[in-house]
Design a protein around this nucleic acid. Structure first.
Lengths: 224, 224
DNA sequence: GCTACCACACTTGTATGGTAGCATTGAACT
DNA sequence: AGTTCAATGCTACCATACAAGTGTGGTAGC
């Protein structure tokens, strides 16, 4: 939820968003210890804004603050991954049904251009960009249904799910079927076929499930 | 999401939870200006932990901090109310279907005792307690399906919805049909009848919709 | 060699003073 | 009378100092 306002350039905000990004991209792997002092030196500022960002990250479950002992990037919690998947499935299925009833034209166009960029990125084998485009695609669905707040909440709950997907991405990823399903969903919205759209969405989300068992075996230190 | 850890008795936490409670119960009405200094005097502590709690409340959208001007309790945002309702409906419908497939016995018993207390509170006309019991009832549904994280996220998104319900409560409230529906849902879970359970849940949530138009007329200063 | 203990180097939590920016007021000016 | 603008008092923001808890390594005593 990003209505945290405050001036975007404030010291506290830059370290917050920077750290958040690094955590979500696994640049800061789960379990990394952080320390307010160390970060204050890295970012060339006092402890206060750093601490502030730690508090916000803790609020979102991205870091774990242990009083008087230290702060570390939270491990990926399998339960939360499953819950995130569950929640996302319910909401996305509902939203795409909404989209079939009413969806603004300009948003449909946005989806088209997004699809084009997906194809391009796929050929370039640019996984990170593909990941971002995938996210933007779904986000646009919510935006078109005026449900951006819902999307924000999903994002928050899915910090754990997304990190596991990020791990999964490095092991193996076939974008093609996902892309095809994206196209199929847009067509279904144009045809105003909620049942078909919902069915594709359900399959789509099941495809991007990462197998936690395998991940836990491969990256035991990252997963709780 | 309350895995913000930190020692529960820390100064920052007490002011955070106290303020949060006061905001959600409208003890601090929307639009109230807060000021770090003032609160630090009220709670007999320095500005630092107060400021920290402000940051956390802002993260949840409960207060709005305007950089060099002040901090005030956020107005009830009609869009967020609608989104909260939407999100809650989707997730509760899905969860009660899950509950019909599998629900631990002790949780069913918890629902029974909750129902008994609801009846008692209804006779006593204790609206606030009824409100809390209602919340506990739904929370138990999520708990039984191991979806407490989802419930936490709903609660967060619903801070605006709940405040509007709190307003609505003071104008007019008929608990009886809600109570009957609660009973009916428990029965449906026992019978393992997902379709009926979901239908009742849908009606149930529609009942507790507060009419934003009316509210906006009655409390124009509270609503955006 | 083993254990108990203590000093020290960390950590986060809290207090406080100073800074920059916004808003209001009121006086000077047109 | 209406307008401009500077003084003033407010705010959140940040830096710094101190307090208090935790873990660790070294050392004295056995």
């Amino acid at each position: 939820m990003d209505w945290s306002s405050q001036q975007p350039g404030s010291a506290g905000n830059v370290v917050y968003s920077r750290l958040k990004h690094q955590i979500l991209t696994l640049e800061l792997p789960p379990g990394t210890v952080l320390s307010e002092k160390e970060m204050s030196m890295v970012f060339q500022m006092s402890r206060t804004p750093v601490r502030e960002s730690f508090v916000r990250l803790a609020q979102e479950g991205l870091v774990l603050v242990l009083p008087q002992r230290g702060t570390k990037v939270s491990l990926i919690d399998s339960e939360l991954v499953e819950e995130g998947r569950f929640m996302r499935e319910q909401l996305e299925r509902a939203v795409i049904r909404l989209a079939c009833e009413h969806f603004p034209e300009e948003m449909l166009i946005a989806l088209d251009t997004n699809l084009a960029m997906q194809q391009e990125s796929m050929e370039k084998r640019d996984d990170q960009r593909m990941f971002d485009l995938d996210e933007a695609f779904h986000r646009t669905l919510f935006e078109g249904c005026r449900k951006l707040g819902t999307w924000a909440v999903i994002q928050q709950m899915n910090s754990h799910l997304n990190r596991s997907r990020m791990l999964w991405l490095s092991t193996d990823q076939h974008w093609n079927p996902l892309y095809e399903q994206h196209k199929e969903m847009v067509e279904a919205i144009r045809r105003r076929d909620p049942n078909h759209a919902e069915r594709v969405m359900k399959m789509h989300l099941n495809l991007s499930i990462s197998n936690m068992e395998v991940l836990k075996e491969k990256y035991p230190n990252y997963i709780k």
